[in-house]
Design a protein around this nucleic acid. Structure first.
Lengths: 141, 141
DNA sequence: TTGCGTGCAAAGGTTTTGCATGGCA
DNA sequence: TGCCATGCAAAACCTTTGCACGCAA
């Protein structure tokens, strides 16, 4: 997977345009189907895998009933080593965290549990304040 | 789902015997198939749903390629609400965390960021001590 | 007896794989 | 030209659903 094909470029562009949102493999297929330039399902999955490996996008497991979702990694607004993310399970909002307290947890984990946490892959799932106020039930897992 | 059927009892016993381990629906089916008293797939899924609702087990989404996994809730040693998990990206080992420090983080998130973290969905990814010593490069997910 | 639980098979998703063809470098 | 990427269909998974039958209460 090194060639820059038309499909590769199109998929990256689409994900970029969805910066800050979670997109499933199905969404990608659907988008290109509707916009005329259809891309095979298998290609979409293969390119998404490639992009995850390249660090261009991240892969998350949130809703168990709609498959994995992907999100473009914004390298400009990043967020180097110690940036973590909170994802609202309800509205999908992504909160960027760069606070001290997580550093403490990270230190504790490595000190007491010998576990070196990986900020790139770790996402805190939960409910954001707005959704907490609005609705109440979180729905089954 | 109120009756205490043979299948219900058998499934609970099995999950109890696997206390501290994560078990998939497939594992449950497989176990009963091998031990002679086969239980239908549909029944396994329905009973697991029931048990989650009853709070007898918890449901986690960890490994994207093997479906949801379940774990018996030990009410005596109470690892219920505040039990988090660390997953080694390299060897796949799962570490159960019930320590104080995570409670602090959880408090901080809700206090300062208005974010209510969900232990059931949140998994800390990283590298465990053994893998850290042995090799170095992190493979895929 | 009543109605929930069971089991089978079929259907519904998402994701992967095999293979011939297409296209980048 | 040499490979890798593509696309289609089929397969592999996990999970849910429909329906007739079985069994707990």
């Amino acid at each position: 997977m090194n060639y820059k094909t038309r499909q590769y470029g199109d998929i990256v562009s689409f994900l970029q345009s969805k910066k800050g949102c979670h997109v499933t493999a199905g969404d990608v297929c659907c988008h290109f189907e509707q916009s005329g330039k259809k891309i095979g399902k298998a290609t979409v999955y293969r390119q998404l895998d490639r992009l995850v490996e390249e660090g261009v996008i991240n892969k998350y497991l949130i809703d168990e009933n709609s498959g994995a979702c992907f999100e473009y990694v914004d390298r400009e607004n990043d967020c180097h080593e110690e940036c973590y993310h909170c994802k609202c399970e309800k509205c999908g909002k992504l909160i960027h965290l760069e606070c001290h307290e997580i550093g403490q947890l990270s230190d504790h984990l490595s000190g007491h549990h010998g576990f070196k946490i990986d900020p790139k892959r770790t996402v805190f799932y939960g409910i954001c304040s707005e959704c907490e106020e609005t609705g109440e039930k979180v729905g089954g897992i």
